[in-house]
C-alpha cells in the first residue's frame, strides 16, 4: 500500500514527488505507465514534466494512455489523485477535472515563485491550511493558463471547486498576480470529488526544507 507516482516518457518531477512524499513519511513508488496502476494504491500522483514531448498539446497523449483508465477507476473509488503541472494538464485532458490548461498569456515558459490563496480548507489537499491562507510555491510551465467557458466558470464558482487562486502576497486576487492569464486566477481545482485535484504550481518543490519554502507540504499531506 503506497502512493503510485506515474511516470511517462518525459516526466521529470516524478522523483521529486517521491522524495517529497517520503520526506513527509508517506510511502511512494514510481510506476511506469505501461505497467498499469498497482492494485489498491493509497494514492496516485500524476507528476510534472513533458510527457510525450508535449506533442499535440501538453498532456494530451498521456491522458489517452491505458493507465488513465486505471486512474479514473481509482479516482471513482475515492483514491486520492493529484495532478501537478504536466499532471494537471493530463488531468484536464483526461476529464478528471474540468477545463483546459493552455499557452500562457505571455507565450513564454515561466519559472518563478507565486502566491496562492487557499479558497477551501475542507478538502484533503487543503486541510492543513485555513481558508484565506496565502502560500508560496513555484510554477514552471508554458501552458498553465486555465480556460473554461463562461457557463462552466459559473458552475465552478457555484460548486466551489476552486482550490487555489493566484494572488498577491497579502492574499488579494488581482490580474497582476495571475502569472499566466488563468480565468478567475485559478491555479488549482478539484474534480467531481474533492479527492481528485490538480494544481499547476508545484507543491512537491515547496516541501523539502533544503530547497526553500515548505508551504506545499500541506497539499501532499492529503496522502498521509
Amino acid at each position: 500500500m503506497t502512493v503510485a507516482v506515474v511516470r511517462f516518457g518525459g516526466s521529470n518531477c516524478d522523483r521529486d514527488a517521491v522524495a517529497a512524499l517520503e520526506h513527509l513519511g508517506i510511502d511512494a513508488e514510481l510506476v511506469w505507465h505501461a505497467d498499469g496502476l498497482p492494485s489498491d494504491p493509497d494514492g496516485v500522483v500524476l507528476p510534472g514534466g513533458f510527457s510525450y514531448g508535449d506533442y499535440l498539446r501538453a498532456g494530451a497523449i498521456a491522458a489517452r494512455t491505458p493507465i488513465l483508465d486505471d486512474v479514473r477507476e481509482a479516482a471513482a473509488d475515492g483514491v486520492p489523485v493529484l495532478g501537478v503541472c504536466n499532471g494537471a494538464q493530463v488531468g484536464a485532458e483526461s476529464g478528471l477535472v474540468p477545463g483546459a490548461f493552455t499557452t500562457n498569456r505571455s507565450a513564454r515558459f515561466q519559472c518563478e515563485h507565486v502566491h496562492l490563496r487557499v479558497e477551501r480548507a475542507d478538502t484533503p489537499w487543503t486541510a492543513a491550511y485555513e481558508e484565506g491562507d496565502v502560500i508560496e510555491v513555484p510554477i514552471a510551465h508554458a501552458e498553465g493558463r486555465f480556460v473554461v467557458d463562461e457557463a462552466r466558470a459559473e458552475r465552478l464558482r457555484e460548486e466551489d471547486r476552486v482550490l487555489f487562486r493566484y494572488c498577491e502576497a497579502d492574499g488579494t486576487v488581482t490580474d497582476a498576480a495571475d502569472p499566466n492569464g488563468s480565468r478567475d486566477n485559478v491555479a488549482g481545482v478539484v474534480g467531481d470529488r474533492d479527492t481528485v485535484a490538480v494544481t499547476m504550481p508545484h507543491p512537491e518543490r515547496a516541501t523539502l526544507p533544503d530547497v526553500g519554502p515548505t508551504d506545499g507540504q500541506g497539499v501532499l499531506r492529503a496522502f498521509a
Binding site: 498539446r57 497523449i61 484536464a92 485532458e93 483546459a100 493552455t102 480556460v147 473554461v148
Partner: peptide, 9 residues
C-alpha cells in the same frame, strides 16, 4: 473528437 481537438478550447 477523441484526440486531435480539445472541445474546451
Amino acid at each position: 473528437e477523441r484526440l486531435l481537438a480539445n472541445p474546451t478550447i
